[in-house]
Amino acid sequence: MEITLLIRILSSVLANSSPLVIAAMGETISERAGVINLSLDGSIMLSAMSGFAVAYLTGNVVLGFLAAMMVGALMALVIAFASITLHQDQVAVGFVLTLLGAELANFLGEPFVRRPGPRVPYMPIPLLRDIPVVGEIFFRQDILVYASIVLIVVVWFWIFKTQAGLRLRGVGERPEAAFARGVSVNRLRYLYTVVGGALVGIAGAAYSLSVKLGWSEGHTLGNGWIALAIVIFGGWHPFRVAFGAYLFGVLISLGGILQRSIPGVPTQVFQAAPFALMILVLLFVSGGALERLLSLFPPRMRRVVGDALRVAPPSALARPFVTE
């Protein structure tokens, strides 16, 4: 009894976290290249709406995802153009796009509010699904969940194990040095910002076509900000970022269980919890709080634990690169 409940929870956490994982991977790639795509919340909203709208009108989920991808990529392209080519403040452009994306989604999405539409089909994998426990958690999902897990590994492999990944990191850490080695810094930044944006678009459609079906005003509100915070918590490392996203999912679903077992606590506590958690998580990884915690460890362990917990952004994050 207990174990089946646990399996059910873990399997739903895995499913519900997949959009967050995909969006955070996209943002990790962009920020690794030195560009902050702050528009995540608006991008996810607009792509969730467009993905659902296209899938609803055509009856084809794949077309929905393609549309969402294009929307996400387009938003990222605006950020890339404004920051890389025009040297405008990434935060300013990103913030304005966040609002613009949300307003556009609300305006254009009105005809699709609360309509039943297509969804990503449930796709258990034959044979593997029958493995006890593991099969029940991992292999009775839809294709998005499988894709999100594969994506984590691919992004990690790309960033840390390939030549292209080395250049990607170079562009975000030491653009001058990368440039001197013949890397076209700004072109790569464009590329990875747009690729990251396309992933964010997929994440948006993953909400409206799988995790939180359909469209309504403010359908995905707040999730983009949480994804951005998770990238920081994850120290721009795909595995840690993914861990952060799943941890977040576990904590939220624990909250849901708590809510049912302790009826006295107001529901609003659980609605605000993700955002309180977001602040606490950032408080934990940044500066003061972490150092104080580390001083509690014995000196010999302090360095090992510190290295594992401390995070630093790519050195050239949000800094435009200008050739002389």
């Binding site: 950032l282 408080l283 940044s286 500066g287």
Partner: peptide, 11 residues
Amino acid sequence: GGVHEIFAGLG
């Protein structure tokens, strides 16, 4: 706390 004001404010 070293939390960027965007995240602090938004949360």
